[in-house]
Design a protein around this nucleic acid. Structure first.
Lengths: 104, 104
DNA sequence: ATTGCATACTTAGTGTAACTAGGTATACTA
DNA sequence: TAGTATACCTAGTTACACTAAGTATGCAAT
């Protein structure tokens, strides 16, 4: 029903390349602390998405520290679109059940 | 991450008593067809919630047909409140990641 | 009569996503 | 040299949601 971690990872990487550890913080920060995903959640998602061809990674060396940057592919963008749409369906469905007096 | 079926069941039953089969349709209808949960999803949720004391059931006979009506308990209302809050956190978190220029 | 459909409820079994909890290794700071 | 922040990794568990199948009744059509 959810797919939230995948959605967030794809969304953030569609804006700029990031490495895993950075992503973990970015999720917390951009969601205004509403969502906090542990490294143990984020890394497996990255690996799975790369295996599916939705992401591409490249290793970079920054002041003696190895980082693996991930960028989104065309396939990943399509996946993001589909997931986002699915999320909106779910979200507006729930809003309708609660709000009642919803839009349109 | 989700708990959506549970949330919807509790919400609808907080408005009026219903039986399982009726709930299945109510979810589809009130969500404007955005969400459709099969009986095989709804019934187990009802059983689990009743076992936890969040719902109370009573059998009724309507024109020769047996129906099991479920009503929400005080405990169920608390559970609903918590789940709803959780949902709003998640939802506004995702909105923030997407919207960017969000409220407050 | 009986075939079929809508109603109404049930549950075993499956799949998988999310998470916990642990681990490795490097750099910097006290 | 001890501790903390950075950076990555994964085995294993759990919790759900879901599929698919089944039972049983009432009613309508043929």
């Amino acid at each position: 029903m959810s797919g939230v971690p995948e959605l967030l990872v794809l969304r953030l990487l569609s804006q700029r390349e990031m490495y895993g550890y950075e992503l973990v913080r970015a999720i917390r920060l951009t969601s205004r602390d509403e969502i906090s995903l542990a490294e143990g959640v984020v890394y497996p998602v990255l690996h799975a998405l790369e295996a599916q061809g939705a992401l591409r990674s490249k290793e970079k060396e920054t002041n003696g520290r190895k980082r693996i940057y991930y960028g989104i592919t065309a396939k990943g963008k399509r996946r993001l679109g589909a997931l986002h749409e699915e999320w909106q369906r779910l979200s507006s469905g729930i809003d309708a059940v609660f709000g009642g007096a919803g839009h349109a």
